[in-house]
């Protein structure tokens, strides 16, 4: 089973952030083919990380592992686009 490491960048512990986390959790829970290791970073609390990783806006989701690095922006409410943006199936085969 493929294991993915994802990092979600949010700004502040707001309802909106909570919603985004919920969306991400839902997508991960619904995926029976992969397991997800999710890290959540609040850029307000960790501005230096945001700067280091050049996070321009939130919510940003980064696929850290396996490479290649992929980055998505948005509220993650569109599952298909999230998977597409993360370079994951079922769309992956059509991607390149």
């Amino acid at each position: 089973m493929i294991k993915l490491k994802l990092t979600l960048y949010i700004s502040g512990q707001t309802q909106k952030s909570a919603h985004t986390v919920k969306q991400l959790k839902k997508i991960c829970d619904e995926d029976s083919q992969r397991t997800y290791d999710i890290e959540i970073i609040d850029v307000l609390k960790n501005p230096q990380i945001a700067e280091e990783k050049k996070i321009l806006a939130t919510p940003t989701l980064v696929r850290e592992l396996p490479l290649p690095l992929c980055r998505i922006i948005g509220d993650l409410s569109n599952k298909e686009k999230v998977l597409w943006g993360l370079n994951l199936t079922p769309i992956e085969t059509e991607r390149e």
Binding site: R71, G74, L76, N78, K81
Partner: peptide
């Protein structure tokens, strides 16, 4: 990288 826009 701004990010792929996963916008509904």
């Amino acid at each position: 990288v701004f990010g792929y826009p996963a916008v509904n």
